[in-house]
Amino acid sequence: MRRRGVIAGIFAAGLIATSVVHSQAATLRNASVITSGTVRLSDLFADLEPGQDRPLGPGPAPGASIQVGGAQLLAIADEYGVDWLDQSPNAMATITRASRVLDQAYFADLVRQNLPELGNGPVSIDLRDFHPMMVAPDDPKPVVLSDVKWDQRSGWFSATVYRGQPSGDITQDSFMLTGVIHAARRLLVYAHALPAGSVISASDVQIDESYAGHIPSRAFTEEADIDGMTVTHGVVAGSPVLDQDLHRTVLMHKGDPAMITFAAPGVHLTATGRALEDGGAGQYIRILNVSSSMIVTGRVVNASEIEVEAGSNPVPSDGNTLRRLTAPARNASRADLSLR
């Protein structure tokens, strides 16, 4: 019985020794991503013993990383009894804090929520000197807006942004948010892209009933106002038709011969004239009636016709005006000598 008890004791000791020898050692995590603000032992080492995991200290800011070098890793493993395979002073572990990005769309929506006077209509909110912000992915209220101010006349607004979970760095925990808010309006936009020099027709533009983008200068709202005008530079589809983008396409140049027409109920008159200034389609310019030497104002119909409306008052031309007009004509064609 005594011998049998000794053997049982030796066998039991053998089992214990075997379990120690064959226990699985921890392995280093060369890179890990954490979601909380605290670094744990398991963020550095995998395969820890049950109950061995514990917090080590504060983690990096959302989106940032920290590195733990070999000497520090050895010290941590020694302090917490981690049996670590392949221990080396050259080892390195990188811990990155998970994050989500608060972009321009997020802050524009936040501004709108804080300005109920904007109503439910479409607006555009352009942020100035904006930089995206990294926050914890599980933070339900990562930032708060304070002191929101909006000048409805100019559209300028400003607000102070505070982190919901301060990091302790005053330069990162709050900043000024500024920009411009544009209310929606009805205007013309380009239906498709056009290169510089294109002459616009009705098929090149369309009405946007609720355009909310930034408009730096006068914008057109009617197709009739821009028909026949020329694009001064390339434009893209959907952009507003602005005064600065266009110039009137010259159909009639100063000195060009033209037919003057006058129409009224029961009356239709024509006369020979000569333009005194450049004019585009639909533009009103002055023209000399060659037969009467009177100056009238009419609307450019095409490259060779000026239409004078009822109520237009002709004025006499002086000798200087006539000489300025006929001098280049004499050089151009002897047939024009009849105008003297």
Rank of each mutant, 00 (worst) to 15 (best):
R3W: 13
R3P: 15
I7N: 06
A12P: 05
G14T: 04
I16M: 08
V21T: 14
H22W: 09
H22V: 15
A26H: 02
T27H: 14
R29D: 01
N30M: 13
T35P: 14
S36P: 08
S36V: 03
V39T: 04
V39A: 08
R40M: 06
L44H: 06
F45S: 07
F45P: 08
A46V: 14
D47Q: 00
D47C: 03
E49D: 15
P50K: 15
P50N: 12
G51N: 08
Q52K: 01
P55T: 10
P55E: 02
V68F: 00
G70W: 10
L73W: 02
L73S: 12
A75C: 13
D78W: 05
E79Q: 10
Y80G: 08
G81N: 10
D83Y: 04
P89I: 09
D103C: 10
F107M: 13
A108T: 11
D109K: 07
L110C: 14
L110S: 14
V111F: 06
Q113P: 14
L115T: 00
N120S: 12
N120Y: 05
N120G: 13
I125D: 02
F130H: 07
H131W: 00
A136Q: 09
D138M: 09
D139P: 11
P140C: 09
V143E: 00
V144C: 04
V144D: 06
S146Q: 15
R153Y: 07
G155K: 00
W156P: 02
G168K: 02
Q172Y: 05
G179L: 03
R185F: 02
R186S: 04
L187H: 09
L187C: 14
L188D: 04
V189M: 03
H192E: 15
A202M: 05
V205H: 03
Q206N: 07
Y211S: 07
G213H: 08
H214T: 12
H214K: 15
R218P: 14
D225G: 08
I226W: 00
I226S: 04
M229E: 06
V231L: 04
V235K: 02
P240V: 01
V241H: 10
L242E: 05
D245H: 13
R248Q: 01
L251S: 06
M252K: 12
H253I: 14
A258R: 01
A263C: 05
H268T: 03
T270N: 13
T272A: 12
G273D: 02
A275W: 00
L276A: 13
A281D: 11
Y284T: 01
I287E: 09
I287S: 07
S291W: 00
S292V: 07
S293C: 12
I295C: 06
V296Q: 02
T297S: 03
N302G: 12
N302A: 03
V308N: 11
E309V: 10
N313T: 11
V315T: 05
D318Y: 01
G319A: 13
R323M: 15
R330V: 07
N331F: 13
S333H: 05
S333Q: 04
A335S: 10
S338V: 12
S338Y: 10
L339P: 01
R340D: 09
R340Q: 12
